[in-house]
Design a protein around this nucleic acid. Structure first.
Lengths: 227, 227
DNA sequence: ACAAAAGTGTTGACGTTACACCCATGA
DNA sequence: TCATGGGTGTAACGTCAACACTTTTGT
């Protein structure tokens, strides 16, 4: 049996397609959404799936995922996070497809995604109104969502979703939408401010009762917290 | 550009080899070790690497990793944990190899690994005396080791390394060797016992000063703690 | 003035760390 | 008997959740 390390060199490739699927999460003031695309052809014609693409010879899986982001939502320099690799024999009905899942977090308004080629629709779907998904993408998305929440709990990776200056209330709403749970206003405030990457602009947001203070991020210090 | 999800079906495979590399960690009373194999042929002839193998057409990556375990250390039914997938263009000097890394935790005495085919040596290498590794396996191993420690901190996955009955001291030594840090005897005791999957056999281990009590695991209850 | 939202501080529960004593065993 | 290791309890600490009051602003 060829199970030693060298066998990789002598083994032919078996028509296995390697793809990257990406759970692109978006937040724009209301609820957390994920970008879904609808297939216009078989298999799974008419089904919504996560956007994905085959890894090209000259690119890494991270490149593939990054290209999805720039093509679909026109964002650059948004960090992607690897979730896992799925190699079940039955996950694709036609051929063997091994996929690595990534997630990213963007502001949907950056770009209005357009359908193309084998897809006839694109939508920002609220996470609490997901349709049936094709392939095993229900699992992929669930895993990616868990990974997103876990990441957010451990590091402040959602501040690029906020405008240049924002209130703590707005920051809290981002957190609550992503984590899908309510947070205590005062505890959230204390925790976030203890990270010391928020700067009080000494200005107040007009037109809002209470006169909330506006904050902006110290990008350099924020970077330190993103491991 | 073929970046939509359907393109995976129409894209030819590009002679990309998909492999599973496995960091097989072993513990047998002294230090934490990892199973390394030495390559007898180029590339990286003479270098130690993690055991790995090409994914076969009929198997998943988990199957590939599982086969490594049964072939090299003759263990079955040991859980494997996916660490990550590495697709850098330069990680293999000869051809394109994308690898998914797994780790497993076994008792080395289960089997004395033998060299075969393109490998001329196999060893259980203490984690604190690692040689230079071929390919990018230094990175793979470091990531796998971090994943192992993280897993152990969150769930008790090391009790299958212990004999049927054991003292808390022995259990603590397993933890300390894996985590590479010293633990407080009383705190460790309280924490482990609070999980309530350990049963005091009411017997004492003979030949040891202090007369330590022997424990055994309640397999059913332990399962509940492994998520 | 009044309602709604923002700013602030305190308390208790919990988990973790640090540490000291007594008891059991082998030499 | 004595040295070594095992069994047990407790105080200090930090983190986090829960909560009430005052201040600011819009209507």
């Amino acid at each position: 049996m060829n199970t030693n390390h060298t066998s990789r060199v002598s083994t032919e490739s078996h028509a296995v397609a390697l793809t990257a699927d990406c759970a692109i999460f978006g937040f724009s003031g209301d609820a957390l959404r994920v970008l879904l695309v609808r297939r216009a052809v078989e298999p799974f014609k008419g089904y919504w799936v996560l956007p994905g693409g085959a890894m090209q010879p000259h690119e890494t899986l991270e490149d593939t995922a990054t290209h999805l982001l720039s093509n679909l939502v026109n964002v650059e320099n948004v960090p992607i996070h690897q979730v896992g690799t799925y190699s079940s024999l039955t996950r694709h009905p036609v051929r063997r497809v091994v996929t690595t899942t990534y997630f990213a977090l963007v502001s949907p308004e950056d770009h209005d995604p357009i359908a193309r080629e084998y897809l006839d629709k694109v939508m920002w779907c609220p996470m609490n109104k997901l349709p049936d998904l094709g392939y095993d993408h229900k699992t992929l998305l669930a895993d990616a969502y868990e990974a997103l929440k876990e990441e957010l709990r451990q590091q402040p990776l959602a501040f690029h979703l906020l405008p240049d200056s924002f209130t703590l209330k707005e920051a809290q709403e981002v957190y609550e939408s992503i984590l899908d749970e309510e947070l205590d206003r005062r505890n959230f405030r204390r925790k976030i401010l203890s990270y010391d990457f928020l700067i009080n602009t000494e200005e107040k947001k007009p037109g809002v009762k209470g006169g909330p203070e506006l904050y902006r991020v110290d990008d350099a210090k924020l970077e330190e917290h993103l491991q």
